[in-house]
């Protein structure tokens, strides 16, 4: 028998499963869709509704608080550039998607990491799942997302959450495991409950690593949200995609540059919070 003649229909099985899910869990997907949709709309409005200068001022203030006046100035100028390139609305739409997706990915990923750090079996189970989620080409998530949630922003955010969550869980687990065992024992030896040790000792000490994970989540989310522009999530991704389909290098570059500016801003801000968290514990 020739091995090439054997056909294991994994694709068919996945199709069947997706069909079954769409038919039987339609209520759930509709619910998620409604909630996510309104979250995204609310945030998008909040970012797009005020005059661009006001939003820029707020972002510059965040930059000042997180780092210093140089970064604040850079933020004001670079976001000003986005406005002048005519990409402001798209950029704010992308920022809203990134924030919603990252917040949800962190809310899912960090607790998974906490459980994994405390439970060896769960950790062993979670690791290959996370590997799978991270290595599967990101486009693939878009297909079932569209089937479950239709075209638009919601499938984009769902695919983004799946793609960007792993580092949040992974680095949370790592950070918690790296906390000095003797320090945890010291918590225990004085009669602290496991919850108290987690919140007062382990998480504060793991915070720099957890923040590095959150930074990764946001960066992955940004890259995925741009890809999601293809399936109608809008924002900068849609601009870049339009540039590609029309072979319009200028438009593509303007969209791409805006993505870079967003990325630098998000990376530096979250990175700064991470190093603030570590300055205390590394002493």
């Amino acid at each position: 028998m020739n091995l090439q003649d054997v056909r294991i229909p994994i694709g068919d099985w996945v199709d069947a499963m997706v069909d079954w899910l769409t038919i039987n869990l339609v209520w759930m997907f509709d619910g998620i869709s409604d909630i996510l949709g309104s979250l995204i709309d609310a945030l998008e409005t909040a970012l797009q509704f005020p005059p661009a200068l006001v939003t820029i001022a707020v972002l510059a203030l965040i930059a000042l608080f997180a780092r210093n006046w140089k970064f604040s100035l850079f933020t004001a100028l670079s976001f000003g550039l986005i406005v002048t390139m005519g990409q402001w609305e798209a950029a704010m739409s992308t920022l809203a998607l990134v924030l919603v997706a990252s917040i949800l990915a962190v809310l899912l990923g960090v607790p998974l990491g906490i459980i994994a750090a405390r439970n060896q079996a769960f950790s062993a189970l979670l690791r290959p799942v996370l590997d799978f989620m991270q290595t599967m080409p990101s486009f693939v998530y878009l297909i079932p997302a569209i089937i479950f949630f239709g075209i638009g922003k919601v499938p984009g955010v769902v695919a983004t959450i799946v793609f960007s969550m792993p580092p949040g869980a992974r680095l949370t687990e790592l950070g918690l495991r790296q906390v000095d065992a003797e320090v945890v024992e010291a918590g225990e030896a004085f009669g602290a409950s496991p919850a108290k040790i987690l919140t007062r000792v382990q998480i504060p000490l793991a915070l720099p690593t957890i923040m590095a994970g959150i930074n990764q989540v946001i960066m992955l989310a940004l890259s995925m949200v741009v890809i999601a522009g293809i399936v109608g999530a809008g924002g900068l991704g849609a601009e870049v995609f339009r540039g590609v389909t029309r072979l319009n290098v200028g438009l593509g570059f303007e969209g791409g540059l805006s993505v870079v500016i967003l990325a630098v801003f998000l990376d530096r801000v979250t990175g700064a919070f991470g190093s603030k968290a570590s300055s205390r514990t590394s002493k």
Partner: peptide
Amino acid sequence: RALRSEKISMVFQHFGLFPH
């Protein structure tokens, strides 16, 4: 936990202090 917090306390080799 009550016993540990009231009757027995502990000092550690590498101090086990909370750096934060």
